[in-house]
């Protein structure tokens, strides 16, 4: 009986280990493993994803139900700052069972690196995602050197 129990525990541990590895694979290593000094804790509103290409950096802010006119986006010395407010009306006469959604003012700062051009920033808001495209300076782009 004890033998059985142990093998059950073993298989559970194996399963746990496998899941753990899968999660690691899925989430990928090296994605902001070192926390930036201006980074926000997990679960902060709005969630942010950042991707880069040799020519640009793109920032996606998951900010549903926000009036884009009330968003303030600025880039200064390679630091992108987005601030705004999402005020969720509270219905006084209703009974609330869950209130999980963020309500209030928010601000997020994202470091884009030194080679971005603050004059070449474009932002669009669609389906609750604010997409900000910041181009890198021409001189900073990697150049292909031709070999003769």
């Amino acid at each position: 009986m004890f033998g059985r129990l142990t093998s059950l525990q073993d298989s559970l541990l194996d399963e746990f280990w496998r899941l753990h590895q899968e999660m690691d694979e899925m989430l990928g290593d090296g994605l902001s493993s070192a926390g930036g000094i201006r980074s926000a804790p997990r679960g902060t509103f709005p969630a942010v994803n950042v991707i880069q290409t040799p020519a640009e950096v793109q920032v996606y802010l998951f900010a549903p139900g926000v009036d884009p006119k009330k968003l303030d986006v600025s880039v200064q010395r390679g630091l992108l700052t987005v601030s705004g407010e999402r005020k969720i009306p509270v219905h006084d006469e209703a009974t609330y069972y869950r209130q999980e959604r963020f309500s209030g003012e928010f601000r997020r700062a994202i470091s884009l690196g030194d080679d971005v051009d603050p004059d070449k920033v474009e932002a669009k808001y669609r389906d609750g995602i604010l997409q900000i495209q910041v181009r890198r300076r021409e001189s900073a782009k990697p150049r292909q050197i031709e070999i003769h």
Binding site: L31, N49, V50, I51, Q58
Partner: peptide, 10 residues
């Protein structure tokens, strides 16, 4: 040619 730099949403 995008490469992820940071991701809250995975």
């Amino acid at each position: 040619d995008a490469e992820a730099m940071y991701a809250d949403v995975r």
